[in-house]
Amino acid sequence: MHSNKKTPKTISGSISFNIIVWTTSILFILFFIVPILRLLLYDSPRYLLSQFLSPVNLEGIKITLLAATVSTVIVVIFGFPLAYILARYQFIGKKMIDAIVELPIMIPHTVVGIALLLVFAKSEPAGPLLSRFGLSFGYSMLAIVMAYMFVSGTYAIKTMEEAIKSVHPRIELVARTLGASQWQVVRMIIIPQISRSILTGGILSWGRAMSEVAAIMIVAPYVIPTYHQIAGIEVYNQFVSTGMKGAVGLSAVLIIISLIILIVLKVIQYQKIFYMPGVER
């Protein structure tokens, strides 16, 4: 239902303040948008379409989207308990755990790739374990998903942590005095109340995963046995082999796809459907 109420006008500030604030903001927006527009308008739409439909590019986009989506689902589901612990419990070493969660943002992502290889490659500690399940790490989709999880998990966990903190612990206490178990409280109250933040964290993680290239160059520059590559590496290859024109096509396609998905998710995020009741009737 739309409200007829108008947003009241705020009291106007000083002119110099407004000029500086607006000019700086506009410059920043231009800084973001001009290179993207330049890239999108570099060639004709027909050329972009042909690039999109090229089997190699299509496969690269598919791998990237699939791995980013799978890694996002995993970090949201498995990150929730960690976010809950960080939001609700006080314990020795909490600050250390908090720092570890934020560490992946700081590490150069080529280093992330090397670190993951040092744990999961065939000859490394966790390699035999993966082999026992018929999995291998290097040059696999598994490696891409895990690298994405490593570089993007922080965003989902931190967003959910802040959201859980915003639900007062007394709400949980009251729910429990009414007879709800901790599981029921999480399922019926916490998750519905922070659903938007879960989606926001997911979007941030997904976006971060989509943009990752460096770590993937180390762990899975291509996927065996298809020899397909994630879109980001494909762009680099095309830039190196055919120059600007080759790279621009796939880059533009990637931007358009990311933009469409981001807009769709943002629209869903602000819909009432995310205002779920605690229990279905």
């Binding site: 007062h168 007394r170 709400i171 206490l173 009251v174 729910a175 429990r176 005095t177 009414l178 007879g179 709800a180 178990s181 019926m188 109250i189 519905p192 109340q193 205002y275 779920m276 009741p277 605690g278």
Partner: peptide, 20 residues
């Protein structure tokens, strides 16, 4: 555990479940 105590609690800020 609170869920086993059979106590009704009305806190100062009501703690209503906003999602319901």
């Amino acid at each position: 555990r609170p869920e086993c105590r059979e106590i009704g609690y009305v806190p100062q800020d009501y703690a209503l479940f906003d999602n319901m």
